[in-house]
């Protein structure tokens, strides 16, 4: 069971010239088991939406609400949100020098579950997750995201998704920078995740190609901090053919 409800969300960032509003009222509900795709041009505020839900300190919520199964997400700290069942696969995963992937994964798993995982099964699970994402078994000894290729970073994010197994996953451009093989591997990981009962996915992307592997239930066109249009998977095909022009023009008048 999981329902992420975003209502009239307004978000600003601090700039040199004072606060700048980025999200101008976003309303979106991800019901139990649904996959939603958000598509939009560069700078439209897609990452801002993802980070705001996850609680990044850079963003100030100036209005609206976000709830997960009725609980007030905005009142929670970043780690509380993750423990409540939210997961954000980041567009630009961060390097953490000196912290090994295996240590990181174990610490995160322990935090999410409230107890340390059973050593035997855990090692097996980690190895399986890495293998399914075509990551070398020695990956565990490397420092988190340090020296990873762009594709490795993204695959590592999805390995975490599978191991931590949240209720709702927000994937911020997980497809960008992936070659076709890696895209398939990543999509399979996301599909394994959402094949489970009741898991929600918010898939943020720039391109339609990932939607060939992960079929969304709904597609939202995101322009200038708002949802400009929504529809079913066919909306993605239309965007593929026509681009964002008609929406960006509408937004600028």
């Amino acid at each position: 069971m999981s329902k992420l409800e975003i209502t009239d969300l307004q978000v600003s960032v601090e700039t040199e010239d004072g606060p700048k509003q980025i999200l101008k009222g976003v309303t979106l509900t991800i019901n139990d088991g649904e996959t939603h795709a958000i598509m939009g041009p560069n700078g439209s505020g897609k990452s801002t939406l993802a980070y705001s839900i996850a609680g990044h300190p850079k963003y100030t919520i100036t209005g609206g609400t976000v709830t997960l199964d009725g609980q007030d997400v905005l009142a929670m700290s970043v780690d509380e949100r993750a423990r409540a069942g939210l997961f954000l696969a980041m567009q630009y995963p961060v390097e953490v020098p000196g912290v090994s992937v295996s240590n990181f994964l174990r610490t995160a798993k322990t935090a999410i579950d409230g107890e340390a995982p059973k050593l035997r099964t855990w090692v097996k699970d980690v190895n399986a997750a890495l293998e399914q994402l075509n990551l070398d078994p020695t990956f565990g000894t490397r420092n988190v995201n340090e020296g990873f290729s762009g594709g490795e970073k993204k695959r590592h994010e999805i390995a975490q998704l599978e191991l931590l197994n949240p209720q709702v996953a927000i994937l911020d451009e997980t497809d960008s920078g992936l070659d076709i093989d890696a895209l398939k591997v990543v999509s399979e990981g996301v599909n394994r995740f959402r094949s489970q009962e009741g898991k929600g996915v918010l898939l943020i992307t720039h391109y339609t190609r990932i939607l060939r592997y992960i079929t969304p239930d709904f597609v939202h066109v995101f322009v200038d901090g708002r949802i400009a249009e929504q529809g079913g998977p066919e909306l993605a095909d239309q965007l593929e053919a026509e681009g964002y022009d008609k929406y960006t023009k509408a937004a600028s008048v």
Partner: peptide, 10 residues
């Protein structure tokens, strides 16, 4: 932020 977004407390 990255670590905390994985449930790890401050």
């Amino acid at each position: 932020f990255y670590l905390r977004a994985r449930g790890i407390d401050d």
